[in-house]
């Protein structure tokens, strides 16, 4: 048993493994990668903002905690804590401002009306839908609904 522990500690020093540093850093980097996949694959700006703001906040918090555990110094810890608090304050604010600007500029959400059997037709959970295509379809529909100025 003590031989196994000795081998394990030798392996940890050989590969430079510090569990207090490495577990939060791996956790955080996996969450950042998940946020990137969500930003790439969600169908809508608002859902992409959800992925970007929440998951990046969690992942970067994990990475900063790992960095602070690696330095184990008061000066480094205060800097990392400053960055962490600043990002916790500003990430929701910037996501809110982007959503507000896009909404007031008239960007439609994919799911802005209740689902009337359109979720299967749009293939929301299968492939990302291009918003510009939806807007083009809506413009064509509005042109068809409006009476032509030369008809009457």
């Amino acid at each position: 048993m003590s031989g196994f522990l000795h081998d394990f500690s030798a392996l940890m020093t050989a590969w430079d493994i510090n569990l207090l540093r490495d577990i939060p850093i791996l956790f955080g980097s996996v969450f950042v990668l998940t946020a990137a996949v969500g930003v790439l694959r969600f169908p809508d700006l608002y859902t992409r903002l959800h992925a970007s703001s929440k998951l990046v906040t969690l992942g970067s918090a994990g990475i900063y905690l790992g960095v602070a555990a690696d330095f184990s110094d008061v000066a480094a810890f205060t800097r990392v804590l400053a960055v962490l608090l600043f990002q916790f304050l500003t990430t929701p604010l910037s996501a809110y401002l982007i959503a507000q600007a896009s909404y007031l500029r008239g960007l439609p959400a994919v799911l802005h009306t209740p689902d009337e059997g359109k979720a299967d037709a749009w293939d929301i959970f299968g492939a990302a839908q291009d918003i510009s295509q939806i807007r083009r379809l809506q413009a064509v529909q509005e042109e068809e609904e409006l009476p032509s100025p030369h008809s009457g």
Partner: peptide, 24 residues
């Protein structure tokens, strides 16, 4: 990104990613 909001959001993401890269 189909709209301007997507590009701004992606640049914001890239900025936070750069902060994380500097910490690492």
């Amino acid at each position: 990104g189909p709209s301007w909001g997507d590009r701004i959001m992606a640049f914001d993401f890239l900025g936070m990613n750069l902060v994380v890269l500097f910490a690492l």
